[in-house]
Structure formats: C-alpha cells, structure tokens
C-alpha cells in the first residue's frame, strides 16, 4: 500500500527535520535511493517550484514528492504524514509543558543536530551540483549565480529562479 508507505516516510521526515523547510531536502534525497518515486534531478525541480509557490517550502515539497510518487492521493498522504508529528508535539507542549522549559529540553538535543543538519544540506548540494553542472559553461554559471545570490541575499529566491529559467533557455540556444 503505497499511501501508507508515503505517510510513514513523511511522518519520519516531519519528526526529524528540525529547523525549517530546507532541512527536508536531504531526507527527500535519501528517498530517491530507496524508492523510484522521483529522480534526483526531479528533486531539484521540486525545490525550485516549492520556493516559487505560496506556502511553507517543506509542505510544498511533501505534496510534490507525494504527487510524483502516487498522484493526488499520494500528495495528500505525504503532506498529512509530514504535518502529524508537529500537530502531536505542539498539542502536547501546549497542554503539559511550560513554554520556555520545552524549548530548553529541545535545545540540548538541537545542540548536536544543528551542525549535522548543515552537513546534510551541504552533502545534498554536492549531489545536486553533479546533476546541474555538466560542462565548463554551466560550472561557471553556477559559480556566478552563487556570487550574485550571496551578494544580494535579501532578494527573494523567486527572482533568482526566474533568472535561472532565462539562463537555461539562453544556454540551450548557444
């Protein structure tokens, strides 16, 4: 039953992806090794679409991944799985624990997790470089893109993604 598997995998991601939408990406990358739901280059496209559409990136990614795996119901199953751990944990915190105490308890756990998550995202970026950079020209484009994005990091990603689309079409026409 693919919907149950999707639900279970995304429940796990919802539980472990601490600190925002981008953190879900390494977990999705790992899914491409174990299931044929979507490819690694499809994952890059999913990231672009999720950053350019309304809603939290993590939720968008889950819906997209689930849709690629098993259509509309797949998208719903994956999203529901991602959301459920949050729902349970936040209700428990609201109900039983003092606000600041709960943060302190999690802070101890996060102490080691934050740098590990950084490694996860960097490693995922490294795998995606291999897919996006195919020759010297695309390599140079990647370096220039990074320098521009780093210089203008207050600008919304959507602008860079649209520029990327133009860049892709220009590279194709050469």
């Amino acid at each position: 039953m693919i919907y149950l598997v999707l639900f279970g995998e995304f429940f796990k991601i919802g539980l472990l992806a601490i600190g925002g939408g981008l953190v879900t990406i390494p977990f999705l990358m790992e899914l491409t090794d174990r299931y044929d739901w979507f490819s690694k280059s499809q994952l890059a496209d999913m990231i672009a679409v999720s950053e350019s559409t309304p809603g939290p990136i993590g939720v968008n990614m889950a819906t997209y991944a689930g849709f690629n795996a098993a259509g509309i119901s797949g998208g719903i199953a994956a999203t529901f799985g991602l959301v459920l751990p949050s729902l349970i944990i936040i209700i428990l915190i609201s109900k039983y624990v003092m606000k600041y105490q709960s943060c302190l308890a999690f802070q101890n756990i996060l102490f080691g997790v934050r740098p590990a998550v950084l490694a996860l995202i960097l490693y995922t970026g490294y795998i995606l470089v291999g897919l996006a950079v195919t020759d010297v020209l695309t390599g140079a484009a990647a370096v220039v893109s990074f320098l521009i994005i780093h210089r203008f990091n207050k600008v919304h990603p959507i602008i860079f993604i649209m520029a990327g689309a133009v860049l892709g079409i220009l590279l194709e026409m050469r």
Binding site: D45, E51, R114, V129, F160, I161, G164, A165, L167, E172
Partner: peptide, 30 residues
C-alpha cells in the same frame, strides 16, 4: 524542449541557493 531547458538553468540556481543556505546556516549553526 523550452521547459526542459528552463529547468536545466533553474537547477543551477537551486544549487547556488542551497550553497547560500549553507553559508547562512554556518554562521548560526557552528
């Protein structure tokens, strides 16, 4: 072909965006 080409370009930007995220998280995380 045009959509495929556009997404090939977008992928380059996605890589750059992820690297930028790593740089930003590095300041906070380590």
């Amino acid at each position: 072909p045009a959509v495929a080409a556009a997404f090939a370009g977008i992928r380059i930007v996605v890589v750059a965006l992820i690297l930028e995220a790593v740089v930003e998280l590095w300041k906070k995380g380590i």
